[in-house]
Simulated assay, not measured.
Amino acid sequence: MKVSIVVGDLSSSGAGRWGGAVRPFLLAQALRKIDCDVEIVGFVGASDQPLSLSEDIPIISIVKENYYPQFFSSAQQLLRNINGEIIYAYKLKASSFGLSILKKIQTRRPLILDIDDWELSWYGGDEWAYKPSLKQLGRDIFKADGALRQPDYPLYLKLMERFIAQANCITLHTQFLQQRFGGIYLPNGKDTTLFDPERYDAEASRLHYGLSGYRILMFPGAPRPYKGLEDVLLALEQLNQKDLKLVIVGGSPYDDYDQELMQKWGQWIIQLPKTPASMMPEVVAAAHIIVVPQRDVPAAQAQFPLKLTDGMAMAKPIISTPVGDIPEILGETGYLVDSNSPQQIAETIEYIFDHWQEATEKGQQARQKCLKSYSLEAMASTLSQILNFLSGPT
């Protein structure tokens, strides 16, 4: 069975930002484990480098025109390149789900929708409304870069939610999204063979990356305000212990927020360059503690922090917050503190280093939980059931 995963944004600031470590690529790897033939079809920017995966999964990149009506030409190219017997749309957007609905109508092939984010949460959620003046409406329609000429403008995101019933099946990775949209819970899986602490020497990794002599708190993701790194830095400032450092890996592909953090708290930060997905386990091995201190806002509630399972798979002590599905994902295998609480983070950092044996045991428990519930094999098992249902007698 061939599955086409349709991605609205494969650019270096979109799903292509980690070179194979984000949701559509995890879906592809899990599908390969159940012997599916998989292709990824999506849009890129004109300046983006072609993506490739070591798993030999074909990636078909279509250069995207950013505004209507030029976008229609890009859309036609993408539609022509969707060859799968199953269409798997990634994200509730016109540039992925909307086009996938058109392909379903053309071909009568089954359509799965994967929702990994509440897209409207970035614009105020249910409070967002389009109420332009007549003059503004004209600008939005007729200006070359007018808002209504943007394929994934919030008005169209809101419209897409009304077409969810067009999907034969919906997969989601958090309970927040499941409660909102229905569907089948399919949490992110980690390649636990690659992310295996037995394969790496922590001190050797620290030496390789220039981290020897420090106690390392690591955030191996893209810094954004809702991810709570400011709370960690305030905690380090409060502790004022020079050997404690927050290591940020790769920086932000979206903006210069990581540079803002460096300017204000540079003495507590070590920034490592962008690292290929295949090298991330070696980087994570260098950490003493993984920090994922999400703040309690809609954007975070809808997410499954991929970097949480980086730490779990590598058996690291983890400090996080009870936001969204994090309490269920971690269970008793990590340390939860209140959101926006530098004081609690500081206390927990001290506790972990003072009770290192306990923290190490929790890390081992976290890996076992990851193997059972948050591995690619666990993803593959659920996807197998979904495809068997879709391909069965109607």
Rank of each mutant, 00 (worst) to 15 (best):
W356V: 08
I329E: 01
G331T: 07
D325Y: 00
Q344G: 02
D338S: 15
F353N: 13
Q365P: 00
R367T: 05
S341H: 14
D338H: 13
D325W: 00
D325T: 09
V337I: 10
F353G: 14
D354A: 15
C370W: 00
R367C: 01
D325P: 12
Q364W: 01
Q343Y: 08
K362L: 11
D325C: 12
V337S: 06
V337Q: 02
Q368N: 09
G334A: 05
P327S: 11
E332P: 07
Q368S: 01
G331I: 02
I326E: 06
V323P: 09
G363N: 04
C370H: 02
W356S: 11
D354S: 15
P342H: 03
A366T: 04
S339W: 10
T348K: 07
H355R: 08
A359Y: 02
Q368I: 04
E350W: 06
L330G: 01
K369C: 00
I329G: 03
C370P: 07
K362H: 12
T348A: 03
H355E: 09
A346W: 10
H355N: 15
H355P: 09
Q343D: 05
I352P: 15
W356D: 01
K369R: 15
G334E: 04
D354H: 14
G324K: 13
L336F: 04
I345L: 03
Q343V: 13
A359I: 10
P342D: 03
G334H: 00
G334Q: 01
G363Y: 00
F353Q: 14
Q357R: 14
D325A: 09
Q368C: 02
P342N: 07
F353K: 14
G331A: 06
S341T: 09
E328H: 13
T333M: 00
S339N: 11
G331Q: 07
K369N: 05
C370I: 08
I349L: 10
K369A: 05
S339L: 04
E328T: 14
I326Y: 02
E328R: 15
E347T: 06
S341R: 12
I349A: 10
Q357E: 15
I352E: 00
D354C: 13
G363F: 03
Q368F: 04
T333R: 03
D354Y: 10
E358Q: 07
T348Y: 12
Y351R: 06
R367I: 00
E328W: 12
E358N: 04
Q368A: 14
H355K: 10
D338K: 15
R367Q: 07
P327C: 11
K362E: 06
Q368Y: 04
S341V: 09
F353D: 08
I352H: 03
A346D: 14
A366K: 01
D354N: 15
C370R: 04
E347M: 05
F353A: 13
